[in-house]
Amino acid sequence: MTINIGVIGAGKIVRVRHLPEIQSNPLARIAAICDVVEARAKEMALEYDCKAYFDYQQMLLDPGIDAVIVAATNTTHAEMSIAALQAGKHVLCEKPMATSLSDARKMLDAAKATGKQLMIAQNQRLEPAHVKAREIIQSGELGKILSFTTIFGHPGCEYWAIDGKNTWFFRSEIAGMGVLGDLAVHKLDLMRFLLDDDYTSASATIDTLAKAFPDGTPITVEDNAICTMQTAKGALGSVITSWTYQVELNRTSIYGEKGVMEIYSDPEFPLIVQKSPETGTYFRLGKKSTNIEQVKSGIIDAFVNAIDEGTDVPIPGIEGYKALEALMACYQSAKSGKRVKIGT
Rank of each mutant, 00 (worst) to 15 (best):
P214T: 03
A84I: 05
P26G: 05
E293I: 12
M59N: 04
L19S: 11
A84D: 12
G286R: 05
G143E: 02
H154L: 02
E248G: 03
A306W: 04
K287I: 00
A210F: 03
M44Y: 05
I120H: 04
G156D: 09
L271E: 05
P63A: 02
K287Q: 11
L27K: 15
I315Q: 01
I240K: 11
H154V: 00
S100D: 01
F152P: 03
D66S: 12
A72W: 01
I292V: 14
I137P: 11
G256R: 10
N305S: 13
I206M: 15
D312I: 05
A129L: 07
R339P: 00
T228Y: 13
G11A: 15
E158S: 00
L195I: 05
K258M: 10
G178L: 04
A111I: 06
A31E: 11
P270W: 03
G259F: 10
E262H: 15
T99V: 15
E325N: 06
E127K: 05
I162E: 14
D109C: 03
A225C: 07
F169D: 03
K287F: 01
D103W: 09
I315A: 08
Q58Y: 01
Y48F: 15
P96V: 12
T75P: 00
H130D: 12
L195V: 06
G9F: 06
T228W: 14
R134Q: 14
K341T: 13
P214F: 03
Y264K: 00
T228V: 15
V221P: 00
A184S: 15
S253H: 03
K288A: 08
E94Q: 12
Y282W: 12
H130Q: 09
Q86V: 02
I292D: 08
L324T: 11
E325F: 07
P316A: 11
V239D: 04
T99A: 06
A202R: 09
E47P: 09
L236R: 14
Y282C: 07
